[in-house]
Amino acid sequence: MNLTLKVWRQSGPTDAGRMVTYKVEDVSPDMSFLEMLDVLNERLIIEGDDPVAFDHDCREGICGMCGMVINGVAHGEQRATTTCQLHMRHFEDGATITIEPWRAAPFPVVKDLVVDRSAFDRIIQAGGFVSVPAGSAPDAHSVPVRKEDADSAFDAATCIGCGACVAACPNGSASLFTAAKITHLSLLPQGQPERLTRAKAMVDQMDAEGFGGCTNTGECTAVCPKGIPLDTIARMNSDYLQANKK
């Protein structure tokens, strides 16, 4: 396959950035999207150009490090798939592909397609945990958990923190990310004691980071590689409003 890539290039946080066009030839349909970019980068290095910087690590769809907006869709149009798991067989030969970084004020561009997502860590710091020092835990079987609750908690807990939800949201909201963690812990008995304080602290931190508000468009869950459901946001709202009543 031969492709034309239009890639966002930005040398650093203060650079204005621009789209640059590259041709990539002899792309195999079995390549992953990132392997296709590897090929481009290998060529750029030999030519003495700066290769396109992009974040990636596990390349098996679980670390959440990779992420780019491909043809206007976070992680590309293939549903429930991270960029690293997107394969070139889903593109037409001769296609033009635009590649942009996640765009959100709380995710400033570091370089090219690399953005700073430390805002997510700070949201977790605000309360995305159960306070339990090592060694103090009771026997794992002392508290049974309804299977349905455990399964739903797991569904929410599969969030990989990639930030696609923010990238796709017309408001630049981090609600799905925040709600996923709140829901995960809110559904389990272990998460109950801190349930309301957690919801309040995390939502307030999300605001403080400068993310937009949720308008329930559902764009986030549509691009989420793990399919985190939208009703996690309802649960977050419920916990948050309850916390504010107290």
Binding site: V69, E77, R103, G210, G212, G218, T221
Partner: peptide, 23 residues
């Protein structure tokens, strides 16, 4: 707030959630 949260617009942007009404 939403505008401030995305100061730089996408060159290409495609909606993935159906629902004309939401937009």
């Amino acid at each position: 707030r939403a505008k401030q949260a995305r100061p730089v617009k996408y060159v290409a942007k495609k909606s993935q959630a159906g629902g004309y009404a939401t937009h």
